[in-house]
């Protein structure tokens, strides 16, 4: 009970501490908009031939004639109401666009994370348990090569191998084959939605589209995760309390799984935040390679079309996800390590 209270307090403090960071990102995106080349009012005018008068009117409507601090306050007020502006390319409010596309990105990222963890942890542990064995050398080679492989190249090579050569994967475009009907939307995660209504045909179709991009992204973070697991497991295995466990006759199973592994996972939990945020970054590349209809490809398309409101919205969304992920990691760490105290 005390543990939970302590975690709750810590969570609350962290949430408060992250507010300045979120505020900073909001101001940053605002300034970003101000230094961007071009006048937003011109973009928002009905067309390239819009008259000076019309532009002036839009400028007044958008509040662009006011001093910058006033504009900043207005902008922040809009943000507080969830108003992220309107996208020129889709004509929709940015918030709505992001909301519609977010599940696709999250589904991809989470699947990739689960895949990467379920491979990296056992590999790292096995390598640490048998130093200089075949598996250790294999894992080290994988780690060395893994961090060198650009996501976009590995994604394309996977497409070549599994779509063109082997034909094991469907056409690498989008989340679902056009001929498969989309399951009714509940969570937005296709795998979950399809399972909820028992539409296994759609589930398999979605999974077959998902596995290649998920594998690409998993490959990207597999190396750092396995490397970290191996290193921390090795360090823990040589620590004094493992020797104590051995000296007092605990079984090998208990020493490895309860004493070593739980301690070795602590540093892995701490780097999870960084791993997750690099995955959010890599999302942009993977979504482009696989034409995945997620938020990152949306922001990228907008960026290349000089449509800046979606880019701002995207950056803010990433910041929010990042804050939330770090809170989750904090809770996990607080549960895992009793030495963490508030503050």
């Amino acid at each position: 009970m005390a543990v939970l209270r302590s975690i709750g307090r810590r969570l609350w403090q962290r949430l408060l501490a992250s507010l300045p960071a979120l505020f900073g990102v909001a101001v940053f995106t605002f300034l970003l908009m101000r230094v961007l080349p071009g006048d937003p009012a011109v973009f928002f005018a009905s067309g390239p031939n819009a008259g000076q008068e019309e532009i002036e009117q839009i400028r007044r409507e958008m509040g662009l004639d006011k001093p910058i601090p006033v504009q900043l306050v207005n902008y922040l007020a809009d943000l507080a109401q969830g108003n992220l502006g309107r996208s020129m390319s889709t004509g929709q409010p940015v918030a709505a666009d992001l909301e519609r596309r977010l599940p696709a990105s999250l589904e991809l990222t989470l699947c990739a994370l689960i895949l990467a963890l379920s491979l990296a942890l056992p590999l790292g542990i096995l390598a640490a348990l048998r130093p200089n064995s075949l598996i250790d050398h294999g894992v080290r080679l994988l780690c060395t090569l893994g961090v060198c492989m650009p996501t976009f190249v590995s994604g394309l090579l996977l497409i070549f191998a599994f779509y063109y050569l082997l034909g094991w994967a469907p056409d690498p475009t989008g989340r679902l084959d056009v001929f498969v009907s989309t399951p009714p939307e509940v969570t937005g995660f296709l795998l979950v939605d399809a399972a909820l209504v028992g539409d296994w045909e759609a589930w398999i179709a979605a999974a077959s589209q998902l596995w290649l991009p998920a594998a690409t992204m998993a490959l990207f973070v597999l190396a750092p995760l396995a490397r970290m697991t191996r290193a921390s497991m090795l360090a823990v295995l040589t620590s004094d309390f493992i020797r104590t466990g051995e000296a007092l006759g605990l079984s090998r199973r208990r020493v490895v799984l309860v004493y070593a592994l739980r301690n070795a996972l602590l540093p892995v939990i701490t780097i999870m935040g960084i791993v997750f945020s690099t995955m959010l970054g890599a999302n942009v590349l993977v979504e482009k390679v696989f034409s995945w209809p997620g938020v990152a490809s949306y922001a990228l398309d907008a960026l290349l079309a000089s449509d800046y409101a979606p880019v701002q919205g995207f950056v803010l969304l990433m910041a929010m996800i990042f804050v939330m992920v770090n809170l989750v990691i904090d809770v996990l760490y607080g549960l895992a390590d009793p030495r963490v105290t508030v503050g």
Binding site: A21, L303, V311, M318, F322
Partner: peptide, 24 residues
Amino acid sequence: GRLVDVLMAFPLFVLAMAMVAAFG
């Protein structure tokens, strides 16, 4: 230290994209 920790956990590639977009 705290600022750097926050920055490091932020999706830096996204930040780079935004900067290139902003600066040209």
